[in-house]
Write a protein that binds this DNA or RNA. Structure first.
Length: 267
DNA sequence: ATGGTGGACCCTCCA
C-alpha cells in the first residue's frame, strides 16, 4: 500500500501538480493539508477522474482544510473531538480495510503558531500548544493500534530536522515547548517512520520557505511533515521518500510530498 | 536587524 502526505497549499490552484504526482507515483491513498477549499467547492469530480472515488474531506473558506483521497473504500472515523472547540478543519481520520485487518489513518494539520514563541503574548502559539495537548490526551485515552498519523505537524523536532539547530532554537517550529509536546504525543504509541529510513544525523527537510530566492542553494529547510506508525505497524514499513524535486515544479507548494510504502494490501 | 514570497480574499489575514 502506497501513501502520500502533502501540504498542497491550495488544492484548487495545484490540481495540475497533484495530477502529475499521481501519474508519477501511483499512490493508493493521498492525505492533503491546507486544501483551502470549503466543502461545497471541493473538486470531487476532478479527483474521481484522477482515480480516487473515495474521499473524505473537511475544509473552510480561505484557511486550513484536510482531505484523504483513496482508490479503495475508506470509512470515516466517528465521534472525533472538535479540537480546541474551533471547528477549523485540521483533522481527518478514516479506517482502511486490508487483508490483515483494519488500519486507522489520521491526517493532521497542526496550527503553525505565529511568530512569537510565547503563549502569554501570542494566542496562535498558545493554540498550537493546546491543540497538541488535547490530541495527546485523546490518544492517551484511546491507545492507538494499527494506526498511522501523517500530516503537517508544523514542528521539526530533531537537531537535523532544521538547517541550523542553534539559529532556530527560538524560532516557532523548533522551540523546546513545542518539541516536548510533540514528543509526548508521539509517545502515546508511535514511532517516527521517516527517521527509521533516514536516521540522524542526516539532514531531512520537507519544507523550504517561499521567502528565499534560491531555496535549493541556500537549503534552509525544515522537516515539518511527518509519518508516524504505531509499533505494531512499524515492521510493515518498506520505503519512504521525500519528493524534493516537486519543490521545483511550476508554481510549487512550499512543502513537498512524502511517499511511503507499507507491506499491507488494501481491500 | 530586517525583510524577504505566496495564497486567499474584501484589503488584510495567514503561512
Amino acid at each position: 500500500m502506497r501513501l502520500i502526505t502533502w501540504n498542497i497549499n491550495s488544492l484548487r490552484l495545484r490540481l495540475p501538480l497533484l495530477q502529475r504526482l499521481v501519474s508519477e507515483q501511483s499512490p493508493d491513498i493521498i492525505c492533503l493539508q491546507e486544501t483551502k477549499v470549503p466543502d461545497p467547492l471541493f473538486p470531487a469530480e476532478a479527483l474521481r477522474d484522477l482515480g480516487f472515488p473515495h474521499m473524505f474531506f473537511c475544509g473552510m473558506k480561505g484557511y486550513n482544510g484536510v482531505a484523504i483521497l483513496s482508490r479503495h473504500t475508506v470509512t470515516p472515523l466517528e465521534a472525533m473531538p472538535d479540537w480546541c472547540g474551533k471547528s477549523d478543519t485540521r483533522h481527518a481520520g478514516v479506517t482502511i480495510n486490508t487483508t490483515t485487518g483494519p488500519v486507522i489513518l489520521h491526517d493532521f494539520y497542526v496550527p503553525a503558531g505565529g511568530d512569537i514563541a510565547d503563549p502569554a503574548v501570542n494566542e496562535k502559539f498558545a493554540h498550537k500548544l493546546e491543540f497538541i495537548e488535547e490530541v495527546t490526551s485523546w490518544f492517551r485515552a484511546n491507545p492507538p493500534q494499527r494506526s498511522i498519523i501523517v500530516g503537517d505537524l508544523n514542528i521539526a523536532p530533531l537537531e537535523h530536522d532544521v538547517w541550523s539547530h542553534k539559529q532556530l532554537a527560538t524560532v516557532v517550529s523548533h522551540t523546546s515547548p513545542e518539541i516536548e509536546r510533540l514528543r509526548a504525543w508521539q509517545d502515546t504509541g508511535f514511532v517516527d517512520a521517516m527517521r527509521l529510513i533516514v536516521p540522524e544525523p542526516e539532514k531531512l527537510y520537507t519544507w523550504w520557505s517561499y521567502r528565499n530566492r534560491d531555496w535549493k542553494r541556500s537549503n534552509r529547510g525544515r522537516r515539518l511533515d511527518h509519518i508516524w506508525l504505531t509499533h505494531d505497524l512499524a515492521p510493515t514499513l518498506r520505503t519512504m521518500s521525500v519528493l524534493r524535486d516537486v519543490r521545483d515544479w511550476e508554481s510549487p507548494s512550499d512543502h513537498v510530498p512524502v511517499v511511503f510504502d507499507l507491506d499491507l494490501d488494501p481491500t
